[in-house]
């Protein structure tokens, strides 16, 4: 049996101490050690429909920038979103967000399947394409649930209500006074907002989010809940 202790791995989520405090149960997802669930009551999938917060920082992701980046990524089989600040789900479950005419953020699917990300990272980028260490520069948190936008309105000045902020829309903005990228990519029928922001501020943001969620009885959720939402149609 693999020892699932986050404090022994080479790569350690900036939040692993927070997870340990919350009695998280860890599981191996691809090469990453992630929180499966925080409690064994089986309530998390249901709570996540209302308001949940998950740490996906250990899941694979990468980024490319430069005048040649979109064309090069397209030749690697990436379906490129048409406009800046939009995101597109890829066939294999991963997601690509276009942050400007010259910049892409590529993140793995909820199964931790890193096929596309690994493949891109192993290629030698073409002329005018520069890789970005997105797995280390940015943390990855996901806020799920019908009350997510209401909660966000306490810490972010962008109107994220689902009829104003469409599926696949991207906002680069300030969240709790730190810069971040918000991508709406729903899990099944449940609204889901992915936040990519300064990895050094991860604990700060995590605490801010949980504090803002308290009013709505939001809770931390593991990937098991994320996967169960993702599976619903």
């Amino acid at each position: 049996m693999i020892e699932l202790t986050p404090d022994k791995a080479l790569r350690r989520s900036p939040l692993y101490r927070r997870h340990l405090q919350l009695n998280a149960q860890f599981e191996q997802l691809g090469e990453a050690l992630v929180v499966g669930a925080y409690s064994d009551t089986g309530m998390e999938p249901r709570l996540a429909i209302s308001l949940g917060l998950a740490d996906l920082s250990c899941l694979p992701r990468t980024g490319f920038k430069g005048p040649g980046a979109p064309d090069w990524a397209a030749t690697q089989g990436v379906e490129i979103p048409s406009a800046p600040n939009t995101a597109l789900a890829q066939a294999d479950g991963s997601m690509v967000a276009k942050l400007s005419h010259q910049e892409l953020l590529i993140v793995s699917g909820m199964q931790g399947d890193s096929g596309l990300v690994d493949n891109l990272n192993q290629q030698i980028p073409g002329t005018g394409v520069y890789s970005l260490p997105r797995a280390d520069s940015h943390s990855w948190l996901a806020v799920t649930g019908l009350l997510a936008a209401e909660m966000f309105s306490k810490i972010c000045a962008i109107d994220l209500r689902t009829h104003k902020f469409a599926q696949g829309q991207v906002a680069q903005t300030s969240i709790a006074k730190i810069n971040g990228i918000i991508v709406r990519q729903d899990l099944g029928t449940t609204p889901c907002f992915h936040i990519f922001s300064d990895i050094a501020s991860t604990e700060f943001l995590w605490d801010c989010l949980l504090d803002a969620m308290e009013e709505h009885q939001g809770v931390a959720i593991g990937v098991a809940a994320i996967r169960s939402l993702d599976a619903t149609e």
């Binding site: 600040n85 400007s100 000045a157 962008i158 906002a171 680069q172 903005t173 300030s174």
Partner: peptide, 11 residues
């Protein structure tokens, strides 16, 4: 021009 209309505090 890239991100649309935002509060001035974002700039």
């Amino acid at each position: 021009p890239l991100n649309g209309q935002r509060n001035i505090s974002e700039f």
